[in-house]
Simulated assay, not measured.
Amino acid sequence: MPFSSSLNPHRPGLAAQPKQDAALSRNVSSYKEPGYEIEPLEVTEILPNCCEFDNQINLISEAYNLVYGVSTNLLGSTNLNKIETPVKNTVLHIAAWNGNNAIVNLVVEHAPKLLFTFNKNNDSALHVAARGGHIQTVKKLLASYANIERHDIKMAWLEYTNNLDDPKEYDEKSNMEDLLEFVKMKNVQGNTMLHEAMLCNKSNNISGDNIFEVCELYENEDCLGNSLAKCCYEYALEIVNHAKKSVLYLAVENGEEDVVQLILENCLNSNEAKPKGLSPVVAAILKRNQGM
């Protein structure tokens, strides 16, 4: 029986949002992630006293024990890499969805390959952290992707990009080139992490401009002179999801005037700056937002 948790990253509104810092809910019930059929779970109560555990790793370890009938050392990288839910969410996905940065750090320390693992929705940990509105978690994850001074993270990058021939040639320029491609990765809905940040539940008072503030921290340039700090605003105009919506469109749709102004101000100097997909003006008209 696969290890199962009710904390699989999912679109808010399809199922109840997981409680902050709770690795497993008291009652584990089946749900459907968009596009995927999940068999009903046989275990209805895994952890009746979950709040008594010290941290999420203990919670997941106990659930693993109860589901499989054996104990496991979750701090062993092999075990961490293997654990997943029915829709392929890893321990890092679960920690990122909950915004538990202590667990994110712990998992990255012991199993950096999980930074490059995607679930069935083709979500990276960045997608689910942004979807949950956990900007500090996005910040920590990006810092991990950029930390190629750590040999294991550098090797994880090289394995992910199928470029293990000469690790010595992998430098900050190479890393920025790869990071730019990684940030543009789309999930099944066609959303990048920037789209997910705009789509997240705003009940946590997270503003959309926070995601750009985090991206602006990465000014190192690749061999073509591109950096995440420069390109994140272009991506907000140029990359559209399967609904043909750009990040700019979503910002207009959400009524986030500060975000719209920030994106436009940082794209004014580009002669090619033109929103792709549905016109943001249409979103403003549909929302009857004359100011926008």
Rank of each mutant, 00 (worst) to 15 (best):
F3P: 05
P9R: 01
Q17C: 13
K19P: 01
A22V: 10
A22R: 05
R26K: 15
S29N: 09
Y31G: 05
P34E: 15
P34R: 14
E39W: 04
T44C: 14
I46R: 03
L47M: 02
N49Y: 15
N49P: 13
E52H: 15
L59E: 08
S61F: 00
S61Q: 05
E62R: 04
V67S: 12
V67F: 09
V70Y: 06
L75G: 00
G76D: 02
S77Q: 03
K82C: 05
T85C: 06
P86Q: 13
V87M: 13
V87T: 13
L92P: 08
L92T: 03
A95M: 00
A95Q: 04
N98K: 10
N100V: 05
N100G: 03
N101L: 08
A102W: 04
H110W: 01
H110F: 04
H110N: 08
A111K: 00
K113G: 10
L114A: 03
K120V: 15
D123P: 10
A125T: 02
V128Q: 07
A130L: 00
I135T: 14
S144E: 13
H151T: 11
K154Q: 08
W157N: 15
E159R: 11
T161M: 15
L164P: 00
D165Q: 15
D166A: 07
D166M: 04
D166T: 08
E169Q: 14
D171M: 11
M176D: 13
L179V: 08
H195K: 07
E196H: 11
A197I: 05
M198H: 04
C200G: 01
N201G: 12
I206F: 14
S207L: 12
F212A: 02
V214H: 04
V214Y: 01
L217P: 01
Y218E: 01
E219H: 05
E219Y: 05
N220C: 04
D222Y: 08
C223N: 13
C231T: 09
C231F: 08
Y233H: 12
E234A: 06
Y235W: 07
Y235P: 08
I239P: 02
I239Y: 00
N241I: 09
A243D: 13
A243R: 11
S246Q: 11
E253P: 06
E256D: 11
D258S: 11
N266L: 09
C267P: 10
A283I: 00
A283C: 01
A284S: 09
L286Q: 08
Q290F: 04
G291M: 03
